[in-house]
Design a protein around this nucleic acid. Structure first.
Lengths: 337, 337
DNA sequence: CTGTTAGCGCCTTCAT
DNA sequence: ATGAAGGCGCTAACAG
C-alpha cells in the first residue's frame, strides 16, 4: 500500500496525497477529508524510509542510558519517550552498563542510526571531555550539570547536585544527627562527586567533620548498596543517619540495616535522592531529594528540538529538587546524642 | 557522500560498491580492498534509509510493552534488549498504556517500521484472537501462555499462571490462613484470570470458599494497588493474608496496610508474583512466585530468531516459576484461627 | 568479475 | 487547487 494506491483509489494524484499526508494548506478541505477517509479505511501508513530518504532527515532521537539497574532512569525514560512523541519524533533507546564507555557506543549509534539528536541519561564527564567531539549532532546530557564541559552542541539539564546533597544532609543535621554515613558512587561519577562535596560541606558548616570511614562506595543498584551497607556494618561503623545518593541505594541500604536488626528510622534515619515512584510506596516511605523528572524530560527535549530545528545554541538548565518528607528520618535517640 | 561518489573516486561502478558494502563474494579481493580503503578515508557510511527503502526490511525487532508502570516488564525488557543484541538485531521499544489496544498499535508499527519480528510483553488474548492475523511477521507473546490462541507465526513463552497462583495460595493456606484476599487484574487480562482461577482452585481444594468480596481489582501499578487495598480496608474486609498478582501490586498493598497500621507479616501476610529485583530488597522482603525472566528472554528471542531466519514453526514454551520465601508471610495469629 | 539500469515510496518544483 | 515528473541513495536483475 503506497501513496500511489491511495491516489488511484481516491481518484487524485500522488502529489495531492502527499500534500494531505504533510498537512499542507493548499488542498481543498473536501479532497483532504476524502483522502484521509480512504487512508483510514485501508490502514495506510507512509513509508518512513522513503520519506526520510527524500527529505534527508530521520526525525528520530536516541536515548543513551547508562546504568540499566538504575530505576531512576527507567522512570525518566518513559517520560522522555512521551515528550519526544509529542514533538513528532521517535525515540530509540540504547542501554549501556554503568561502566560502559558511552561515547564509544554513541559514536557507533550515530553512524548507524543517524538520529537527529541524542539525549544522554548519565555519563562520565571524563569520557565526554575526551570524546564528545565525535558526536556531530545536537545532544543533551541529562542529570549532570557541570561547567567542565563546553561543547557548542551539548546542552545540560539537571539539578544542582551539590546544593541538593547539602540540603539533604542539613536536614539530617537539623534533626540532631551528628554521625552521618554517606553511601554513593565513586569520585569518577560527577554527580556522585558533587553530592559528596555537598554532604561534606553541610557537615563542616555545622561543625561536624566528614569521616571517610563513614563513606560507603556503591554503584546505583540495590545489590551494590546492600553489600556496601553490610560492609559498613561489619566494620562497626557508628552512625545514626544515612545519606544515600539515590533512592535505589537507600532501599538497598535499608534492606541491609533491616537484616542486621536495625529499625529505620528508629535506630537509623535514611534519606535518599531522586524521588522514584517506589520511594513513596516502600515501608518506611523514603525521605528523598526529588528530582523533577517531568520537567527535566520536558526541558531536555525542548532544548534538543530547538537545537535541531532552529540551530539554537546549547544551554544549561539547572532545576530545583524538592524535599520529600517521607517516614525514614527522625531525630536520633536522645536528641543530639 | 553516496556510493556514487565512492564509485567515481574509486573508478568503478556503483554496483561494485554496493557489492562491497554487502560483502558479496563476487568482487575481486583487490578491488574490494581498494574500495574499502576509500570508504574508510572519506568516512563513508551507507544511507540506511535508501537501503531499507530498497530491500524493504530492517534487521530490527520491536518490543510492544503493555503497561509502562509495570516494573516487571522494565526488568524483562533490559534482558530482551541484551539478547537480541547478541543476535545482531536491534530492538526498538514501543510503550503502551495498560489499557491500550496493542494490536492496533502493532499493526501501525508493522507498516511503519517493518521490523522482522515482534515480541509482545503482555497483551489481551481477546485482542490477539480478533486481530493478530494482521501481524504478518513472526511474533512471540511473552508472559502469556494460552491454548486459546493458535496462529502459525505466534509463539508463546511464559509460566503456567494458574499453577503458579495455585502454589502461592496453597503456601498461604499451609501456613494456616483461611481468609485470603486476592488483589489483581480484571478477567479481561488472561494472566489475571488464570491467576485468579488458580487461587480459587487452591482455596476450594482446601475446603475454603473463594469470597468475591475479598477480591480487589487493581492494575499493575503501585498506585492502583495502594488504592485498591485502601478500599478493601475501608469496607472492613476481613483477611489474614493477601495474594497479590504481581510484586508491584504487593508493594502498593503493603504500603496501604502499613499506613493503616497493619504489620506485614505480623497482622497480614502478603505473597507476590514476578520476583522483580525490588522484591528482594524491600522490607519485609517479599515472598513471591518468581518468573525466570532471564530464561524467558532467552527463549523468546531464540524462538523469534528461529522463526525469522529459518521459518521455524511457532512454539509454546512453559517455564516453571520458583517460590521465593521472603519474610512477608507467616502463620496467622493463633494458628489456623 | 564488473557495469548499466530500473525502480523502492515519497516529496517537490514547475506547470496548469 | 491539482497533476506530472525528476530524483533522494541504494540494490538487484540483467548484460556483458
Amino acid at each position: 500500500m503506497t501513496i500511489k494506491d491511495i491516489a488511484r483509489i481516491s481518484g487524485c494524484s500522488v502529489s495531492t496525497i502527499s500534500r494531505v499526508i504533510n498537512d499542507r494548506p493548499d488542498v481543498r478541505p473536501e479532497t483532504k477529508e476524502h483522502v484521509l477517509e480512504i487512508m483510514r479505511q485501508v490502514g495506510f501508513v507512509p513509508n518512513s524510509n522513503a520519506r526520510q530518504l527524500k527529505i534527508q532527515q530521520s526525525r528520530s532521537v536516541v536515548f543513551v542510558v547508562k546504568g540499566t539497574q538504575n530505576m531512576f532512569f527507567a522512570d525518566f525514560l518513559v517520560q522522555l519517550q512521551q515528550v519526544v512523541g509529542l514533538y513528532g519524533y521517535s525515540g530509540i533507546v540504547s542501554y549501556l552498563d554503568e561502566d560502559a564507555n558511552e561515547m564509544e557506543a554513541a559514536g557507533r549509534i550515530l553512524r548507524e542510526i543517524k538520529p537527529k539528536g541524542m539525549i544522554f541519561l548519565g555519563g562520565s564527564v571524563e569520557n565526554f571531555r575526551r570524546s564528545f567531539d565525535q558526536i556531530t549532532v545536537p545532544a543533551v546530557l541529562a542529570t549532570v550539570v557541570t561547567d567542565e564541559l563546553d561543547f557548542p552542541n551539548l546542552s545540560m539539564v539537571g539539578v544542582d547536585d551539590r546544593a541538593a546533597a547539602y540540603q539533604a544532609v542539613t536536614c539530617l543535621i537539623a534533626q540532631g544527627h551528628r554521625q552521618i554515613c554517606v553511601v554513593g558512587g565513586p569520585a569518577t561519577s560527577y554527580p556522585s562527586r558533587m553530592r559528596r562535596l555537598g554532604a561534606q560541606q553541610a557537615m563542616e558548616d555545622n561543625g561536624l567533620v566528614f569521616d571517610p570511614r563513614l563513606y560507603g562506595l556503591s554503584s546505583y543498584s540495590f545489590e551494590s548498596a546492600y553489600n556496601t551497607m553490610n560492609s559498613l556494618l561489619a566494620r562497626r561503623a557508628q552512625f545514626t543517619a544515612v545519606f544515600a545518593m539515590s533512592d535505589v541505594i537507600a532501599i538497598g541500604a535499608i534492606r541491609a540495616l533491616a537484616s542486621a536488626g536495625y529499625k529505620v528510622p528508629g535506630d537509623v534515619s535514611v534519606i535518599g535522592f531522586d524521588g522514584i515512584a517506589m520511594s513513596r510506596y516502600c515501608v518506611p516511605a523514603l525521605a528523598s531529594m526529588v528530582q523533577p523528572t517531568g520537567e527535566m524530560a520536558l526541558r531536555a527535549v525542548e532544548l534538543l528540538i530547538r537545537q535541531i530545528e532552529h540551530g539554537a545554541p546549547a544551554q544549561t538548565i539547572v532545576l530545583s529538587p524538592t524535599l520529600q518528607e517521607g517516614e525514614s528520618i527522625r531525630p536520633p535517640r536522645g536528641g543530639a546524642a
